[in-house]
């Protein structure tokens, strides 16, 4: 039961993550610069444990990223070893760096390209989590170019497809 709840929460947060990424691609120059540096049509997959939530996106010149139906194989796949581990990261209890250090996920694909995605997630965490949470999990606060509330509001209005 607890696992199923975490799974549901992971699904919701992945959706928020996706929409916020698209918002920040338009509103945050650092995120835009990172994503513009990705290879054309690069596909990226986040898997939240065995049987867990999945997000697959493709690099898109206009929107930054667009969602794909479940791809069998992406250029980069970050696969959490467990639903619980994914939940710890998506709920702001641990940073991506902590998760990497604790072997909570493994990676298929180019480590070099993945580092850019990790930086984007850290920018995003700076917006999505309250200051006390970001300060606890991030090595340094990345700063904001627009108010966090605006990101949330625009993410709500964002096309989720």
């Amino acid at each position: 039961m607890k696992r199923e709840l975490m799974n549901q929460a992971d699904r919701i947060v992945l959706e928020v993550l996706y929409r916020s990424f698209r918002v920040l691609y338009r509103k945050d120059s650092r995120v835009r610069k990172e994503i513009d540096g990705w290879a054309d049509d690069l596909t990226l997959k986040l898997v939240c444990g065995f049987g867990g939530a999945v997000l697959v996106v493709r690099h898109d010149r206009e929107h930054g990223i667009v969602k794909l139906k479940r791809a069998q194989k992406a250029d980069i796949t970050m696969r959490f070893k467990s639903v619980e581990g994914a939940f710890q990261v998506l709920s702001g209890q641990k940073s991506v760096a902590d998760a990497y250090a604790e072997h909570l996920f493994f990676l298929e694909g180019d480590i070099f390209q993945t580092m850019s995605f990790v930086r984007c997630v850290e920018y995003l965490e700076g917006y999505l989590f309250p200051g006390f949470m970001s300060r606890r999990i991030l090595k340094e606060l990345p700063g904001k170019q627009i108010p966090a509330l605006e990101v949330y509001a625009l993410a709500l209005l964002e096309n989720g497809n």
């Binding site: 760096a97 250090a101 480590i111 580092m115 090595k139």
Partner: peptide
């Protein structure tokens, strides 16, 4: 260097 995996586990950003 920024894209090297070693950066992620460096204790300082």
């Amino acid at each position: 260097a920024l894209n090297d995996g070693a950066c992620i586990v460096n204790p300082r950003e």
